Amino acid sequence: MLRKLYDRVIAYSAKPSAPWALALVSFAESSVFPIPPDVLQVPMTLAQPQKAWRYALIATIASVLGGVVGYAIGALLYDSVGKFLIDLYGYGQKVGAFQTAYDHYGHWVILLKGITPIPYKLVTITSGFAHYNIWWFLGLSLITRGARFFLLAGMLHYFGPMARDFIERRLGLMTFGLLGVVVLGFLAAIYLM
């Protein structure tokens, strides 16, 4: 089953709509969606390594734009949509601690959490809720999300053929590993914030 799904994503990478799908997932992940864009960026880059930097740029821009939506949810709709999303992902009791961290370390919170597997929507919604300076938020989001997606693109571009061979031979292990990273990100957000 994993092999068929992987093969479909690799085949889909050649379609003109693939960058749009990457943009949509990147946008949604920054505000409401739980799946990271890596699940598309990795196979798309492996299928077309010459487009690694383009895919990283698409993911970065879409993620930052989605972050603006997350920020707006936190700033304008926290009592309804924002609180619902935070509670949905199990972080309701952590918002106060997160806001306190913003008061002291706002820049570092955005920079560090934006590059980790901790769900970025927590950063965007809480940034809005904390009324963090929108211009700093945008600049720091561009830096941290760009670093994440361009670093991934660089590794895949450099190790492309070896990485593709490794992933294809160990697809189950790699899928389990990616799932583990997502789960660890959620757990870290719950217990380390």
Score class of each variant (00 low, 15 high):
Gly67Met: 09
Phe84Met: 11
Val81Asp: 06
Ile73Gln: 09
Leu65Phe: 10
Met174Ser: 15
Val123His: 03
Leu88Glu: 02
Ser127Cys: 02
Met162Val: 10
Tyr120Ser: 12
Thr144His: 01
Ile86Cys: 00
Ala14Tyr: 15
Lys94Trp: 02
Leu140Phe: 10
Tyr71Val: 05
Gly67Leu: 10
Leu179Tyr: 07
Gly90Glu: 11
Tyr12Trp: 15
Ile61Phe: 11
Phe27Asn: 03
Arg164Trp: 01
Arg169Asp: 13
Ala23Pro: 02
Leu5Cys: 11
Thr60Tyr: 01
Ile110Gly: 02
Gly172Val: 14
Ser127Arg: 03
Val182Ser: 04
Ser13Asn: 00
Ala72Ser: 10
Gly160Pro: 03
Thr116Asn: 06
Ile61Asn: 05
Ala163Trp: 08
Asp103Phe: 09
Val109Tyr: 07
Pro119Tyr: 01
Gly177Ser: 10
Arg54Cys: 03
Ser13Met: 00
Phe137Lys: 04
Val68Tyr: 13
Arg170Cys: 10
Ser30Gly: 13
Leu112Ala: 08
Tyr78Met: 12
Ala23Gly: 15
Gly154Gln: 01
Ala97Arg: 10
Leu76Phe: 14
Phe159Tyr: 08
Gly66Leu: 08
Phe129Glu: 07
Val123Tyr: 05
Pro117Tyr: 08
Ser141Trp: 02
Leu178His: 12
Val181Phe: 11
Lys51Trp: 04
Leu65Lys: 05
Leu85His: 08
Ser30Cys: 11
Lys121Ala: 02
Leu184Tyr: 05
Ile134Gln: 01
Pro19Cys: 08
Ala28Gln: 08
Gly128His: 04
Val69Phe: 07
Leu111Phe: 05
Pro117Asn: 08
Ser17Gly: 12
Leu138Phe: 07
Trp108Glu: 10
Leu173Trp: 15
Val81Phe: 13
Ser80Ala: 14
Ala18Pro: 10
Val109Ile: 15
Thr45Val: 14
Asp165Cys: 13
Glu168Pro: 09
Arg148Phe: 10
Ala14Thr: 14
Gly185Asn: 06
Ala52Ile: 04
Ser141Ala: 08
Ala14Arg: 15
Gln93Leu: 12
Phe27Ser: 03
Phe137Trp: 04
Leu138Ala: 03
Thr124Ser: 14
Leu77Arg: 07
Ala75Lys: 07
Asp79Trp: 05
Arg8Gln: 15
Met44Gly: 00
Phe149His: 12
Val109Leu: 14
Tyr191Gln: 06
Ser31Lys: 05
Tyr191Cys: 05
Asp103Leu: 14
Ile61Ser: 06
Leu2Arg: 10
Trp53Ile: 13
Gln48Phe: 00
Gln93Thr: 12
Leu24Pro: 01
Trp136Cys: 06
Leu178Pro: 06
Ile118Trp: 05
Leu88Lys: 06
Val95His: 00
Leu184Ser: 12
Ala153Phe: 03
Arg8Ile: 11
Arg8Met: 13
Leu187Cys: 06
Arg170Phe: 12
Thr60Gln: 07
Leu88Gln: 04
Leu151Tyr: 14
Met44Val: 00
Phe84Tyr: 12
Ala21Pro: 04
Ile125Pro: 00
Tyr91Trp: 02
Lys15Cys: 01
